[in-house]
Design a protein around this nucleic acid. Structure first.
Lengths: 244, 244
DNA sequence: TGCTAATGTGTAAATATTACGCATTGCAAA
DNA sequence: TTTGCAATGCGTAATATTTACACATTAGCA
């Protein structure tokens, strides 16, 4: 691995959706006293890493995302940079950094990314550290200033999902209209009328009905749809709008 | 001046409005061969500077903005971080950096800020370098990757002005409805129907009519209004919307 | 006094949003 | 085989919002 830049890092707020809840991907941060095995730190963080010399920041984020999820070419977008002088100054964080092998600066600026992935297609590669999906409203204690970063990422998702068709990134390629509705309701914390929601979606020419139905459900199976970015780009004149 | 961090900077895209055009504040970047006086570089850049050790990034931006405009407590918001490995690698930029006294890294990540100021209240403090307002569609050649930064800043302004009441930041405290309309038309590149625009604005309870009229115009003087952020925050339930 | 260049107001038509009820389908239990 | 369940799929009326558009008013200035 080439050398990293000691004072610049990237953190990813990676969202997934399991048809019930909106989840975020976290990594366990655990530190034990070598001899006594006493637990010094046991909390969670977003996934992140320092950027490499000669590496574009976007590429650093993509690298980290791929190493965690195995996924490439998914929605990944910078949303904010956190660089307060004291952001790594609380005792636990200092302790953690001291125990890391690499020589990190004590003043690190981190560029935060928002990522949306189809979590049904991902099996977490656990590697040496514990990685887990947490529902966004049941988060454990987060290290560093990651709570703040997470909140801002969620805000950005909520903002953006209303004006751009990025919700689809959280669903499998083929999805039903109810699944899409549940997703939007989860993200925005609202409820839509089922019939009006359907009407609205059917107007979007880039949400394309398939000749195929849902399987393995114990009720009337719903029709499946796909999202076409190509059609979306072509017909962009109509404003995308999922306002509450 | 305390020491700066060599690989992290801040750049500000500062917008102003002169009731006709939307302008951006630029600084001249000029370099002459010491002996022959041959002009090696003569172009323009956004205003920016490296951050100081122990200085929060937001504070660095505020410091730079104040040093240029004399203004404090104006609209200032981070919008994107630019950190491609090669962003300062073109010959002119390398030459410029070589001639700067301070020891800058050749890999600098810059955090870009969007600022909106009432340019009618500002007299530029020229200092040692030439500072000028340029209409956003008549920009001169920009150094570094500042063209790209500017474009993204303008995009952000256009986005944001439609969903949040930030346009007022570009106007004097007291303004007429036509001035507000011209501002929105300039930013969004559209035209609004005068009567419908007025109707819309008058519905906003946080745009408050004064018992005072425009002076020094040679036609029927218009009523003056002020924007009240306080009232806005209180009545935020209604969505702010200046969609095209 | 009259001209000019803006401001200031109201209404009808078109469009978009909301509210809401009933028939249909496939599975599973009786 | 029938019946009940749970969700899908469809249509219409009421309401709210947006758009289009025309004429009277005011202050400065010639």
């Amino acid at each position: 691995m080439p050398k990293t830049i000691s004072n610049i890092s990237v953190d990813c707020v990676i969202f997934g959706f399991d048809f019930k809840q909106l989840n975020v991907l976290l990594v366990e941060r655990k530190l034990e006293e070598p001899k006594s095995k006493k637990v010094l730190i046991d909390d969670w963080t977003l996934v992140g890493y320092h950027i490499l010399e000669d590496e574009n920041i976007d590429n650093a984020a993509a690298r980290i995302l791929k190493s965690m999820s195995g996924l490439d070419h998914v929605f990944l977008e910078q949303f904010h940079t956190f660089g307060n002088a004291n952001r790594l100054n609380n005792p636990k964080d200092k302790l953690w950094l001291k125990h890391q092998s690499e020589g990190f600066s004590d003043r690190v600026v981190t560029v935060a990314y928002l990522s949306l992935i189809d979590s049904t297609s991902v099996s977490l590669s656990l590697k040496e550290r514990n990685v887990k999906w947490y529902p966004v409203n049941e988060l454990p204690e987060l290290g560093f200033d990651h709570r703040k970063i997470f909140e801002k990422g969620l805000d950005r998702l909520r903002d953006k999902v209303r004006s751009e068709p990025i919700g689809f990134e959280l669903l499998p390629e083929k999805f039903t209209i109810s699944q899409l509705q549940r997703l939007y309701e989860e993200i925005l914390g609202t409820e839509f009328d089922r019939r009006n929601f359907r009407k609205k979606v059917l107007q979007m020419k880039y949400v394309i009905p398939l000749d195929e139905k849902q399987k393995g459900v114990k009720h009337k199976p719903a029709q499946l749809f796909i999202f076409s970015r190509e059609v979306y780009e072509k017909t962009k004149t109509e404003r995308f709008d999922f306002s509450v």
